[in-house]
Structures are given as structure tokens and as C-alpha cells.
Design a protein around this nucleic acid. Structure first.
Lengths: 111, 111
DNA sequence: TTATTATACCTCGTAATACGAGGTATCAAC
DNA sequence: GTTGATACCTCGTATTACGAGGTATAATAA
């Protein structure tokens, strides 16, 4: 498949920020949650996810904290920052404009 | 801005194929038409458009023909091929699935 | 006449990024 | 004690949008 590989570009950040805003999560959890919330459509590879999280943290949109799980491995939980919230609002609005513009062209209302 | 630069990746082909299916067009015309049909949202740079057209032609989705305009410069008109039509149908469907999946995450119906 | 603007095509280099492949470590189940 | 799930990470490759640069024609303005 890989059908949506290029489509995904530009939406990854919005998707991750949205999930994290809803609830602070760690990487592995984000992959599962992304899959679940999209009805199985999205499956983020780890090679996509982790670099993306590091990028978002570097930009100050999320903040990671190592936390212990009961008798388990350490997990890095990510929290949305205030800046991250602002950027998400902008990105979500931009997504809506973009999607509307695409729909104007690929499925015009009046032929 | 350049806000939708990365968003555009993966949609360019669908957008171009859609316009060409509607009516065979030449490059410069596609830029203007894209802008018009999207309510001014999209503005394809020539560095984006021409390589994309060459790519689509190489893949056999469109076919270009040099045609004379009255007392003007030669224009390369692009026509959608049968294969191009098939691919467009698939890509348009994929776009709908993708957009639906994104919306499930960035604007969930039941919070 | 000359300069500018619009049309019309093209190429090259850069930047961004999704992803596969590879690597490490823990813990439960079989 | 080996497999599978969890949980993290990095590197190289491929793709592609775009700016900047280049060429040429025709109409309009100075």
C-alpha cells in the first residue's frame, strides 16, 4: 500500500498534537491510539513517529517526561505546551481550509 | 506563508489530473485555473507545476501535445489518458478516505 | 524606439519528511 | 529459553514542493 505516504506529509504534526492535547501519551501508545481513532486507517511507523515527536519537542510544542510504569519499562510521556495548543488551533484551521480547497477541485459541486 | 507546502504533497497529482480531466489545458492555464477554482487558495509555482506535469506524462497519466495559438507562442496542451482517468478515480477515493481519517482525529464528533 | 508587462516554457539545487531497516532493553507467556 | 509484545532509538533513502534562474514572444506604455 503506502498509498497515503505523501498525503500524510503536513498532517502528521496536527494529528499528533491533537492526540496529545486530548490526553498526554507516550510514543507507543500514540501509535495504537492513532490506529484506533482513525478506524485502522493510520498506522504510524516508529521511524515516522519518534523523529516527529523529537521535532515537536524541539519546537516547544510538546514536552516529554520520563515516567515509570508499574514494574515495567520507562515511558516518555508527552504533554502539550501552551505554544503547542496555539499551533494546533492554527494548524487545524489550516487543514480545514486546505481540505475545502482540494474538494473544490476534485469534486466540484456544480459541473 | 508557505503554510500548505507540506500539506500539498500527495495532493498535487489529484488536483492536476482533476483539472485536466475537466478540460485539456496547458501549463500556464493550469496555474490560473487552479487559483480560480480554489477561490485563490492554491497558487502553484512554475517550479512545482512543470516538473509535476513531466512526471505525470512520464507515468502515462497525461499526454502533452504542442499546439499553436493564434499568432502566439506554442503551448503544450495536456490530455488525460485512460490510465490517468483510472488513477484519478483511485486517488480521489483515497483522498476522501484520508480526509475522513484526519477529521476523525483532529475534530472528533463525540468528545 | 525602448521598456515593461504578461504570457509561456524550462531546469537545478535545497529543504523537508515519511518510512524501512536496523539496533537495544524489559517482561510475560508458552 | 524462546517467542512475542512492549518501548525506546537512529540512519539512509526516496520523494517532492519551491525559489531562483534562464529563454522567448507579443502587446502595451513611456
Amino acid at each position: 500500500m503506502g498509498y497515503e505516504r505523501e498525503l500524510l506529509k503536513g498532517s502528521t504534526d496536527s494529528l499528533l498534537l491533537s492526540l496529545i492535547e486530548n490526553k498526554p501519551m507516550y510514543g507507543y501508545q500514540l501509535i495504537k491510539e492513532m490506529e484506533h481513532r482513525s478506524g485502522g486507517y493510520f498506522h504510524f511507523g516508529e521511524g515516522t513517529l519518534y523523529p516527529a515527536l523529537h521535532r515537536l519537542e524541539k519546537e516547544g510544542l510538546i514536552q516529554g517526561k520520563w515516567e515509570h510504569s508499574l514494574g515495567g519499562q520507562e515511558r516518555r510521556y508527552y504533554y502539550l505546551t501552551q505554544k503547542g495548543h496555539q499551533v494546533l488551533v492554527e494548524k487545524a484551521a489550516e487543514w480545514q481550509r486546505f481540505a475545502a480547497a482540494v474538494n473544490m477541485i476534485i469534486e466540484p459541486i456544480s459541473p
